[in-house]
Design a protein around this nucleic acid. Structure first.
Length: 286
DNA sequence: GCCCAGGTGAAGC
DNA sequence: GCTTCACATGGG
């Protein structure tokens, strides 16, 4: 057969919620499977009965890149056990107990979240699809599947003009992405070095990039580097904190940030993702 | 038309 | 210091 297929055991893993929960933006569900790109590889994922079937276009020497990306070896129950036991957190976990955090490529994650500001997830997906289609390298797919491109490298984006980026519908974010790509492509800042830093040092580095503030920095710290203390506060999480934890008062953002740093435990970032997902998916009140 | 979206940076007080 | 505003674009 063409390519390569492998089966993995899943335990308490909601693949659909995880791939569609606004961490990564390139996964699409078609013909009862998830299709996406991890690094240089096209991947098709199908989950059923606690079994995950993964297919690639070309044979692969090992599957560590996939188990790492999906964090298949993580014992989620141990993470959930560290959450504070309050009604809000219980509701959020009950709403989606198999929600996971991915471990993405830092550059793709950074670039994606620079493009995310004041955009709905559907629109972020559209912008990134255009960016990859126009400027990413074509990669091999299994026979019968639509052509697809890798996420463009820093060098590929650094070589573009702002107008070419704006043609991908990213609007005022174009100069931020361009400047960030050039800082990396020209060696001014090195994303690989952040892995060995403390979360505070790594955040400081990310804040050097134009268009990157505290929220986007924390997304990258959490979704790419796995810093469990990172706690991105977007409009949804802000809403969750105010409604669920401070319904009477009106604490300012700085005070709220201090609360998140102490209250949610050693896997605060994970707790944050549950609150985010809960707020976005719970039935709207009349 | 209106308001909002996984915000940030700069200008104004 | 803190608050307000501009920035593109599209969904509901």
């Amino acid at each position: 057969m063409n390519g390569c297929q492998q089966v993995f055991a899943l335990r308490n893993y909601d693949l659909a919620a995880t791939l569609a929960s606004g961490q990564a933006f390139r996964w699409r569900y078609r013909d009862s499977a998830w299709h996406g790109v991890i690094g240089p590889r096209w991947v098709r994922l199908h989950a059923a009965d606690n079994l995950l079937t993964a297919q690639t276009a070309a044979p692969v020497p090992d599957w560590n890149w996939l188990t790492h990306y999906l964090q298949l070896d993580l014992d989620l129950d141990r993470v959930l056990a560290t959450f504070p036991s309050d009604d809000a957190m219980r509701s959020a976990v009950a709403a989606c107990s198999g929600l996971r955090l991915l471990r993405q490529d830092p550059w793709e994650c950074l670039a994606s979240f620079i493009l995310s500001s004041t955009k709905q997830i559907v629109q972020i997906q559209q912008i990134i699809a255009l960016l990859c289609e126009h400027h990413g390298s074509a990669i091999e797919v299994a026979p019968g599947h639509a052509a697809i491109h890798a996420f463009p490298s820093p060098a590929q984006i650094a070589a573009l003009s702002e107008a070419e980026l704006r043609a991908c519908k990213m609007g005022f974010r174009a100069p931020y992405l361009l400047a960030t790509a050039r800082l990396i492509a020209h060696g001014k800042l090195n994303l690989a070095r952040l892995e060995s830093m403390s979360v505070v040092e790594a955040r400081e580095q990310l804040l050097q990039f134009p268009g990157v503030g505290r929220k986007i920095a924390d997304c990258v710290l959490l979704f790419a580097y796995g810093f469990q203390a990172a706690f991105p506060v977007d409009v949804w999480v802000m809403k969750a904190l105010r409604e669920l934890y401070f319904p009477k008062r009106r604490p300012n953002p700085q005070r709220l940030l201090r609360f998140t740093e102490s209250y949610f435990g050693t896997h605060a970032g994970y707790a944050q993702q549950y609150l985010f997902h809960y707020m976005r998916t719970r039935p709207r009140l009349a």
